[in-house]
Amino acid sequence: MLSEPEPFRLAGIGDEAAPGLPEQLTAVTELGWNLLELRTLEGVPVAALPEADFARAAEQIRAHGVEVVAVAAKIGDWSRPATGDFAVDLAELDVLARRCAVLGTRMVRIMSYPSGGLAEPEWGRLVLSRMRELVRRAEDSGLVLVHENCAGWAGDDADRVLDLIARVDSPALRVLFDTGNGVAHGYDAVTMLRPLAEYVAHVHVKDAVSLPGGDTAYVRPGEGGAGVDECLRVLAEQGYRGALSIEPHLALRPHLGADGADPGRGDRAAFVEYGRALEEMVLRIRETEETS
């Protein structure tokens, strides 16, 4: 294993390696890492786990000496349009506030709601109203909501992200930047990242190439068109000290389930190989900085 070079800490979204927690923990520790991002266990989101199952999982994580760096919520994601029932999101946040305290993490991934058919400016007003309430509750619970550049009103527009941050005006709302989402959503990741870099609190690493017909294929970091290397350099220049959490999407693409397609079940070997590739990329960045 390569040593973890500063400034980055290395992590992984566990269900990209395997559905079950034991295999997720094994994959992270095989890399020599101790940071895990939780999204689902056996396909069940963290907030939806039965209490007994969650308690067992939290104990397993502690026993392995692994730290949970972030938890993925479904709040505002591709499955929950702005026209949906906001009470569902509030209830999920209440559960995650309790569970994050048990897990020892403060960071919760959210998005900013697909339109559900709403037009501007109604869509934007509704998103802002919901975000203010979510962030108020996050403040009360000691959480930080990190908004991903994916689904929703501010998913692919840096100006909207900045507007959201300015108008909510709270340290409990920050940015989760995913390096690979630009390829899938049709924008340049580096260009979007630059004005947002100072607000980034968490990072997902994936890379991708566009295919004919508008589909996307996911590849090892540095082998696609996402500009992963340049994104990491921008973050390093900004002084980012958070985690880089691998989300390979080589064997699991959760959003496909919304259309009835098989999302996959993760691949531990591919996950570990991906982690090694990220280690090598980060090491090259460090060596370049040291000689420049």
Rank of each mutant, 00 (worst) to 15 (best):
A258F: 07
V46F: 01
I75G: 08
A277E: 03
R220S: 11
V108A: 07
A73P: 05
T288C: 13
V102M: 05
V46H: 00
L196C: 08
R80K: 12
M111I: 15
D89W: 10
A236N: 05
A138C: 04
L93K: 01
E290S: 15
V234C: 06
R253C: 15
L10W: 00
L173G: 05
P81S: 08
P221H: 00
A201Y: 04
L35W: 05
V219N: 06
D159F: 09
L162M: 05
R62M: 05
V209P: 07
L164P: 01
E148W: 03
Y240P: 13
G222I: 00
E237S: 08
R194F: 14
I75M: 00
E4T: 13
D229I: 11
G43I: 01
E289S: 15
E287T: 08
P81Y: 06
V144G: 11
H202L: 06
L278E: 02
D140C: 12
R99F: 02
G152W: 00
V168K: 00
R80I: 12
R160G: 11
E280L: 13
L90S: 14
L250D: 14
A269F: 15
A82M: 01
G224F: 03
F86E: 14
P121F: 00
P19L: 07
R136P: 10
V175R: 02
L128V: 10
D94R: 02
R62F: 09
L278P: 15
V200F: 04
L25I: 15
W78N: 11
A27D: 10
L176S: 09
Y187I: 08
R286C: 13
L41I: 13
A261L: 07
E92G: 11
G116W: 01
R132I: 13
A172H: 11
S3A: 10
E67C: 13
Y187C: 08
M281K: 02
L252E: 04
A217E: 11
V95R: 04
L90V: 11
G124H: 00
D163C: 12
V95S: 14
E230T: 15
E122M: 14
D53L: 12
H202I: 15
I75P: 05
P254V: 02
F54P: 07
E289V: 10
A87R: 05
V66Y: 01
E198W: 14
V175I: 05
L103M: 04
E6H: 06
A270V: 14
A55W: 07
A251W: 03
H204D: 02
A82D: 05
W78D: 10
T40S: 14
E6S: 09
G260Q: 01
A82I: 09
A52R: 09
V144R: 01
T288A: 09
G213C: 02
P81E: 03
A269H: 06
R80N: 15
Y218G: 12
L193I: 14
D262E: 03
Y199N: 06
E122F: 14
V95W: 03
T191E: 15
L126H: 13
A97F: 12
R136G: 13
M107I: 14
L278Q: 01
R106C: 09
L90T: 11
A236E: 08
A184K: 06
S129W: 03
V88Y: 04
P212H: 09
A226S: 05
A236Y: 01
G84P: 04
V203E: 01
C150S: 13
H255T: 10
L21K: 01
V46K: 00
L38H: 04
I165P: 13
Y274R: 02
Y218M: 07
R268G: 10
E92S: 08
S115W: 00
E42L: 15
I285S: 09
